[in-house]
Amino acid sequence: MADPRARIQRLLSLVPYVLKHQGATLGELCEVFGVTRDQLMRDLNLIFVCGQPDYTPADLIEVDIDGDRVFIRMADYFARPLRFTNTELYGLHLACSALAKLSGKEASTALLSAMEKISEALREGRPPQDGIDGRIEIKPPSHERDVLSELSRACGERRVVDMEYYTYGRDEMSRRRVHPLSLEFGMGHWYLRAWDERRGESRVFRVDRIKELEVTAETFVPPEGEDLESSPPGPYGAAESGGIEVKLSFSAALADWAREQPIFTRCEEVKGRLVCVLRTENLSWLERELLSYGTEVKVISPPELKRRLKERALATLAVYGTDRPDTS
């Protein structure tokens, strides 16, 4: 049985919702309250037997389901939901200010005015703003904020986007024509999920790696069977599954750090070092990563990675070959 408290709270908002929106569909109610159809039916059946003493048919709340439309009457005392608790108000303020920081300009303007209205309506229920200010800091992602608004509009209007994109995995720039489907925030970055015309499949692009973009006048029809709501967001990160198995050995100094990295599918201790395995499609990004770890990490396999790492190290060394004068 689910938490009775959550259920009571839901019922106390469900009734006022239907009172204000008579004839709301079952589907709409499921979506708004995040419940299955079965749970919703159980909720409505329970409301049906609640009411005022003496609980004769004339005292009970009236619930009518006509087709898939819901009507509630005789429940005027539940005309409004319950006020916020302090922690709810706090939580809402924190979530709103986080989103205002993370999202495009338009969304954050609307959010701030919405929050202002809420504070005003609650008057004395205003949270101690000085408690929040200066105690929480949310660093906005590094892309320009307008990009997010532009992409968000392109998703909504289903317009084809032309962009110049840096692919970390292959360490190269490319031009792409994509059909933007959704924007997702995860691991501290915004990602664009989009159908890539040339590759004929949907891909995830990190928004801050889009160098330039143009929302074209051309519209697209979203691919069949791309049900975003039912698939979880992600996964993000450079390494996904791939044909090449890479085995690395980390020194004790980096072992704990390596264990925290989600890209490794397997980690085991061997003679004081940590041997980690990952699968990837490209080695290019690994050359850069491995240069960064220096001699704290050794490549066990494949030999090709060893060879390429050495080439990359030599190429980088060549940059330092001729001593430049200090430009300051």
Binding site: F33, R80, R83, Y90
Partner: peptide
């Protein structure tokens, strides 16, 4: 809790 507050705002 933020989710609970938004549920209350849903009407």
């Amino acid at each position: 809790e933020a989710g609970a507050a938004l549920e209350k705002l849903s009407p």
